[in-house]
Nucleic acid binder design. Structure first.
Lengths: 466, 466
DNA sequence: AAATTTGTCTATTTACATTTC
DNA sequence: GGAAATGTAAATAGACAAATT
């Protein structure tokens, strides 16, 4: 029996006790989920303490805790001992953000992708392959790990992005996202925790949600994960790994400092933490930054994808793994894919071996610089983050805009951009910002038109505020 | 304090109580797992009742149950209320069975794959594509769902394998295994149960293990799932789905009867059960058998892969899904892959549209018949299951052979085959049989040599038995 | 056919560690 | 800096249902 009347103490959330046969903890979890999804509980809302709810419903604290656990694992809640449980800021955000084909009605600046080019180097490789007598072998099953020369080729490319590794540590996957999925599925169990930037790559959020792995935002200083935050997450959330994108972090565009990289490598060794290093944009860097994989090779799985720097269509990526994780990763890749396409693997390997991969990456770098020159000029006076060679930018919004509201307004104006909420992890309130995929529009003209439409919105709000 | 002394009552397994800080349930689970993996507890062993173990260790039954649950979810145990808990027959089998390149030292008859052919129809398509002015578009991102004409093409092909569907129900995936992974990850949570044949496709076992989904073997009659078994599994194990391979089931080669298909479709509707229909070999059938997807379209996700009937290298597959699962599947595919290769998708679509897919499949059928004629003759007198157009066969072993022992002996003799244990689910003792991938050896000569080596073993044992 | 064996599920008790005030 | 607030985890108690005898 409840001890007090709660009529006078307003609770931010009151579950209804429906006494059909349904177990209590499921009933509570279900109500909580539906109230969040219906918008009755807004992101950021602090829920009543578990003990208070338990008292109100006349059940045990553990029953509430179990219900909260279910929702928490679905990414709907973020809780901290001492401070309480909060509805996650990204509970409602749709994190599945594939480019949609809407017949050109909308200018795509949402999904990050490189500018479309001719890819003539790749066509040349293909023509050569087609002319070979035993072409059919590429259409048959190939060894899952790829051939030795293919891996040797990849080793040389990786060296150029600051990652020293060896052939026996490489595993091919079907693109960076597939690699992330294989790593999370193969090395973690539901309920395990992985540390991430407070704003992180949505593909990681999406995998974590699918597989029931929890993402823990790590405290930052100067735009990157700091030692204090990392240690704290190790001690408290018991994170088993930390996911980083060291070059041109998605979405903030931040490139990690040498000290930051060194700190993470050192901490990983001290705490036996795994670093998941996503080098998706590393080939864009004019000169390589030394990777975590080179600093702490036994504690890093390094993901080297060609999608955003060479060709999105090849869907190829290599994972460089320490030996102790190799079996688990190869089992996981087997379970998810059986094997990759030996055809694509061969094309990509030849493109890499011939040096064309770097040529193409350099071309994408140049193209991005050209587009960014335009964008920098048009958005002069606004707080626009990101290096000139980066294929996306991070715009901090003026006035009263939130990322979410700006995203909707932009969409209504015919431009797709993604607001900060899509990248936010856990309960922290995201900055007012949007990501601009500057290489995604079909042409410079389209890019200009897109930015022009955004400018209208940016100015309008400022005027309204006066 | 234990009430009785257990010295006189021998228990099949006695955990050691190590009183360091480790939680009891984890200690028990860890010991159990290591004893199984070390071979101290053999497959099929009945473990002591949970209450007996609880009494022995002086802990609560639930603690034992929790520990068993952990091992059970890892696929190490199979338990039934009333009869007890058993060590799973496939606890030790390595289910990751990619073909290994060992320099031709061993004849590959383990991994199922079609015979290697020229694939000249595919080269022709590729040449055509390369000559087109805007070839570069295939190397860029494409719409995740594929274009409308690609899906229309797929619809027409699916119709020819007995599956009536529409374009809006199709989602492309990177091969059949990738489709299975996306379905299991997207539509089920860890702990959910899926019904399967008592001998099932190892790729399914592998995904289930990775994702913590439980496979429940369904009772059979005449080589296929029967109504009684299915109803029983619905009522007791609360299965949410049943996974079937209706044509040329892997590994038993069984093709389901019309009545069996109808029964499953009917039961699925009655019980709101999802049918996961893996049509990986359906194109091999000389005439189509009506699929479950056509019989119970709102209750079936149908997987149509080209790997084993057209080209393993294309890694293309379509999932035909009822509308209610489409969003979840597309999210899951996004999380696992981001997207497929628009290049491979286009090649495959053109191969299908031109009718070459069927031409190639028909060629594989002919080639299989040629090989099977040889195998039938050489193994005359043995119980060899499977139709002549099937690219693998199922050999019931004479004498005292178990599948596992035969597999080892064959491996020592230089032939890779897979024993029944690799396919077995749960605690049921698998038949004494091996699967022979008759299309996998490089040539007919190699196939003959492989079968010759197997014959030596088959005869040897029989002599030893006299 | 009824009693017993057996695994599983929910909810509780208790202890603990961190954060907040 | 210490007490209170708060979430989490382990182990238990008890009820339940299926399978066996």
């Amino acid at each position: 029996m409840p001890v007090n009347s709660f009529e006078n103490y307003p609770m931010s959330w009151k579950p209804r006790r429906t006494d059909d046969g349904e177990p209590l903890y499921l009933m509570i979890a279900r109500q909580l989920e539906s109230d969040i999804r219906n918008g009755d509980l807004l992101p950021g809302t602090k829920l009543p303490p578990q003990r208070e709810l338990a008292d109100y419903l006349d059940v045990n604290v553990s029953t509430i805790s179990r219900a909260f656990g279910i929702c928490s694992r679905k990414g709907l809640l973020g809780g901290t001992v001492g401070s309480g449980t909060f509805v996650a800021y990204d509970a409602l955000a749709n994190i599945n953000v594939t480019p949609q084909d809407e017949g050109g009605a909308i200018i795509e600046m949402g999904s990050v992708m490189p500018e479309r080019t001719s890819y003539e180097e790749i066509s040349a490789v293909l023509k050569k392959m087609l002319s070979e007598p035993d072409f059919g072998r590429f259409l048959h099953y190939g060894a899952a790990a790829g051939s030795l020369w293919q891996r040797e080729t990849a080793v040389r490319l990786l060296r150029k992005t600051g990652c020293e590794t060896t052939e026996d540590r490489l595993l091919p996957a079907n693109g960076g996202q597939n690699a992330i999925a294989a790593i999370v599925a193969g090395l973690f169990r539901p309920g395990d925790c992985i540390g991430v930037d407070p704003m992180t790559y949505p593909g990681m959020k999406s995998v974590a949600k699918l597989l029931g792995v929890r993402l823990i935002p790590i405290g930052q200083e100067r735009g990157e994960i700091c030692e204090e935050g990392l240690i704290h997450a190790c001690d408290n959330a018991k994170i088993k790994a930390v996911y980083i994108m060291p070059d041109y972090q998605n979405p903030t565009t931040h490139t990690m400092s040498d000290e930051g990289r060194e700190m993470i490598a050192r901490t990983a060794k001290e705490r036996d933490l795994l670093i998941i290093e996503d080098a998706i944009h590393s080939l864009l860097a004019p000169r390589p930054n030394q990777s975590a994989a080179s600093r702490a090779p036994e504690h890093t799985v390094h993901i080297a994808s060609l999608s955003n720097t060479v060709s999105p269509g090849l869907r190829l990526c290599y994972i460089a793994t320490p030996p102790r994780y190799k079996d688990a990763l190869s089992d996981s890749l087997y379970s998810l894919n059986l094997t990759g396409s030996p055809f694509l693997l061969e094309i990509a390997s030849r493109v890499i071996a011939s040096g064309s991969a770097e040529t193409i990456a350099a071309r994408h770098r140049e193209l991005a610089m050209g587009r960014n020159a335009v964008v920098n000029e048009m958005l002069a006076g606004y707080d626009l983050r990101g290096a000139d060679e980066c294929i996306f930018r991070w715009l901090l919004l003026p006035g009263g805009w939130s990322g979410e509201r700006f995203e909707s307004a932009a969409s209504a104006a015919g431009v797709r951009v993604y607001g900060a909420e899509r990248f936010a992890v856990g309960k922290a309130k995201p900055a007012a910002a949007v990501r601009l995929a500057i290489a995604a529009p079909e042409s410079i003209e389209e890019l200009k038109e897109g930015v022009r439409r955004l400018l209208v919105l940016l100015r309008k709000e400022e005027v309204a505020k006066l």
